[in-house]
Design a protein around this nucleic acid. Structure first.
Length: 273
DNA sequence: AGTGCGACCCGAACGC
DNA sequence: TGCGTTCGGGTCGCAC
């Protein structure tokens, strides 16, 4: 669910509440969610670090502290709650940051897939995830030629390749389907077989879909709404995703659902030959 | 190296 | 109604 637009929406919300605040302490209730460094070092190093800036890189939320970057990956259902120390701990709140204004930032994830990292500033570009991430969708270097080189040897379906974060970062299962629909490309087409026009359309429509989704505050498919949950409106703009057996908005053909690389994939058989 | 697939995890949705 | 089963979402790690 959280793809680039949802991640940006969350980051903007966090920014409003967290800039300038100092982290006094952190409690970890599920060790697996801390990817780096070890739990003792994580707890020790983060003390008294102030949050100066919040951005995104790929699907990661990146907080710039004094000496470290604090990174969060929401995976499917990660979310943040603002609470005070007196509030009872929720069942799915796994990492709790105590701040210098007596408030708490709580990182919650029903499925425990979310990830947290605390990386030394001078190491950020030499270790994962930064070394594995491709271009941001709006990067000027994202051109048809760039994609041509990346796709050249790929026999995988373009649907799967759009999800490869080392080429373009930020696209997930929902927007991949939407981008291919607007580009009139069948999701099963091998990446190496795409034309120059196909690649140009992919770039153009990636920006178009993501910009619109950001404007709408992201997409909310399953309504697990909490007051802090991101409830976007982009679901009203979906052309194919989650529309199995419904008529195509353009040609009225019936939208089909198939599996591509194990992922549910929706497309219009007439518009996307 | 590129590809395919299970694992991670759990609630919701589905089938009987 | 209640039970068991399947599904999904992003990414990693392992096997081929």
């Amino acid at each position: 669910m959280p793809e680039k637009p949802e991640v940006i929406t969350v980051a903007r919300k966090l920014e409003k509440k967290l800039i300038g605040k100092k982290i006094l302490n952190v409690d970890v209730y599920h060790d697996n969610m801390i990817d780096y460094p070890s739990i003792p070092l994580f707890k020790e190093r983060i003390k008294n670090e102030t949050i100066h800036d919040i951005t995104t890189r790929g699907k990661w939320i990146v907080m710039s502290l004094d000496n470290y970057y604090l990174l969060f990956h929401l995976r499917m259902e990660g979310k943040f709650f603002f609470r005070t120390k007196n509030d009872e701990k929720g069942k799915h709140e796994h990492v709790i940051f105590s701040l210098d204004d007596d408030s708490e930032l709580r990182f919650a994830d029903v499925r425990k897939f979310g990830k947290v990292m605390l990386i030394e500033k001078d190491k950020i570009y030499s270790m994962k995830p930064y070394t594995e991430l491709g271009l941001e969708p709006w990067d000027k270097e994202l051109t048809s030629d760039y994609l041509k080189e990346k796709y050249m040897k790929k026999t995988l379906p373009i649907k799967s390749v759009l999800l490869d974060q080392s080429i373009i970062t930020g696209i997930g299962n929902i927007y991949a389907d939407e981008i291919l629909f607007l580009s009139h490309i069948n999701p099963l087409t091998r990446a190496k077989d795409l034309t120059d026009k196909n690649r140009e359309d992919i770039i153009k429509n990636t920006i178009k879909v993501l910009d619109k989704a950001i404007e709408e505050g992201g997409t909310t498919i399953r309504s697990y709404t909490s007051e802090e949950g991101v409830t976007g409106r982009f679901q009203n703009n979906l052309n194919v995703h989650q529309r199995e057996k419904e008529p195509c908005h353009f040609c009225k053909s019936i939208i089909v659902k198939i599996k591509v690389g194990g992922r549910g994939t929706y497309y219009c058989p007439k518009c996307q030959k």
